[in-house]
Amino acid sequence: MSVTTDPVALNQWIPCAWNGQIRPGATRDTQILGQPIRVTCAPDGAISCNVLDGAAGAVGRALPVTQKFEIIFATLGSDPRPLPKIHEFDEPGRRIANCGSVGVNTSPFRIVENFLDMAHFCFVHTDILGAVDQTEVLSYKCEVRPDADEVWATDCRFFQPAASKSAATNGKGQLTHYKYRVMSPFSVMLYKNVFGREDLDDAICVFIQPKTETECIAYMTMALVDEGSTMTQIIDFQQSIFLQDRIILENQRPALLSFAPNAEIPTKADLSSIAFRRWLKASGITFGTVKEAA
């Protein structure tokens, strides 16, 4: 595809690499919103990003870059939506995990909705995040918080056999408490209370790099409370969960999200995705959506 002209999509910080992915002196060529780019790591570690123009891929103008949450972001816009505040990444004692990035062929919004959804735990993550005999999604709350212009789902609870790598070792399962937060059209996170300690939530984030409307790279970084597992075990657990979702994500039809009222049939369990679609539509974004006939 050619570069999008959608101003809402253009004015976002888009991930283009994870911290440490590019060795000093090396480059990484990729694509954001249809625009080929080159990310460069200078010998001293400084990161820069340029567009690649034309068929020959000539190095063109420099793009603003920033680094946060273990990820390198670039933007094609002149006034990008600010990156969210996630204080868990700055808290001392937290395990900061970078699970790398995984390619997924679907629109970014399918990825966000899958992340918001609890009703699939029993079927896609059987015996880990959900059990086949405990499928009910208890009612929860959902709102758009106007100060940050973010979608939040709270009071979410779900019975889980093995809610995290540490929880998996006790064998009994638990009622896990979740909060979900959509920080931007291309990013979503959840707060997961695994050990029942007040205000000590695991923060698990997905930042999405749309290469095109239907090809994305999903970056997953986390700020965890877990004290027992090794980083390798933590990463392994989250990657396994995500690869289970990926089979679903690449097989939803259509890949693009539709705002048409009868295109799909939500239920009460889908409160957060209903709110997300309404919020997306209000933002005016068209990238990644089914275009209505003129």
Binding site: N251, Q252, R253, P254, E264, I265
Partner: peptide, 8 residues
């Protein structure tokens, strides 16, 4: 296509 969320 499932009418819920389009899964095959």
């Amino acid at each position: 296509r499932c009418p819920h969320r389009g899964m095959r």
